[in-house]
């Protein structure tokens, strides 16, 4: 099978598009690399090499000794596992020779990020943080205070994310709101140990996915991606703690370091 120059360019574009989607929706680097290479090879390239950096990917395809290189910027579009699943499914179908380049491109362009119903997410996150308060040994009062605080913080987080605010501002604001509400619980002495609610209600802001991705990227040899993700999640945690400290200073309650 010999590909023309145009076909090779098209193949490279399709492969880099798949990689870009994976990168934007929070896949780990190994998955981005493998999926992009597999799509490129299945569409007929002799070799596909790519370099992943935190905000862009560069890909080179090799066909009959000719190289085509292209770069795509990857802006973070939020973690979305459904997009990752769909790209993976397309990759498997290409490998089984069920799709050609044109069809793959059409399918990739048709993908739309699926979002769960936002009020359902708010409810579940409220109960999640309330469950954490149970793990920390809180009683029923702490459970419900955490539920209210975490739900309101989640609503704020969704609203700010919807308006494309900076994630650091967003997380600090959400932590501020959650801590204000739980501090009121501490002032009115809700239950045996209201400080537990303060600790549990901000756990919806833990950047868990980037942290796990950071360590597994570094384990699998993508050190620079791992460091970038690690620094990003550390900065998020710092902005959350600034929001918490601001709220505690404002209300005059201390719940963490004593």
């Amino acid at each position: 099978m010999s590909l023309s120059k145009e076909q090779q360019t098209e193949l490279t574009r399709v492969a880099v598009f798949a990689g870009q989607i994976l990168h934007q929706h929070g896949a780990e680097s190994r998955l981005i690399e493998q999926t992009t290479q597999r799509i490129g090879l299945a569409l007929g390239a002799d070799n596909v090499e790519l370099s992943i950096s935190p905000d862009a990917i560069v890909i080179t395809s090799l066909v009959n000794g000719h190289c085509v290189t292209t770069t795509r910027r990857c802006h973070d579009r939020g973690i979305n596992m459904q997009m990752v699943c769909d790209v993976q499914r397309i990759c498997v179908m290409v490998e089984k020779q069920l799709l050609d380049a044109k069809e793959v491109k059409k399918r990739l362009q048709r993908l739309k990020p699926f979002k769960h119903n936002r009020w359902l997410v708010v409810l579940m996150i409220g109960f999640s943080c309330a469950s954490f308060s149970h793990f920390f040994g809180g009683d029923r009062a702490a459970y419900w205070v955490t539920f209210v605080a975490a739900s309101l913080a989640m609503i704020l987080r969704q609203e700010l994310a919807h308006r494309q605010h900076n994630p650091f501002v967003n997380f600090a604001a959400a932590a501020f709101v959650a801590t204000i509400i739980t501090s009121v619980g501490v002032i009115f002495e809700a239950g045996e140990n209201p400080q537990i609610a303060m600790a549990a209600s901000v756990l919806l802001l833990v950047p868990g996915f980037p942290l796990i991705n950071a360590v597994s990227d570094m384990l699998k040899g993508h050190i620079n991606m791992g460091i970038a993700r690690w620094v990003f999640s550390t900065l998020l945690a710092i902005s959350v703690s600034i929001g918490i400290v601001a709220a505690m200073t404002l209300i005059g309650v201390s719940g963490w370091t004593n």
Binding site: I79, M81, Q82, M83, H116, V121, I125, C129, F132
Partner: peptide, 14 residues
């Protein structure tokens, strides 16, 4: 509960 709650934040398919 937290596993499903955070899975929904990550938009895991239903």
């Amino acid at each position: 509960i937290p596993a499903v709650g955070f899975a929904m934040v990550f938009n895991v398919p239903r």
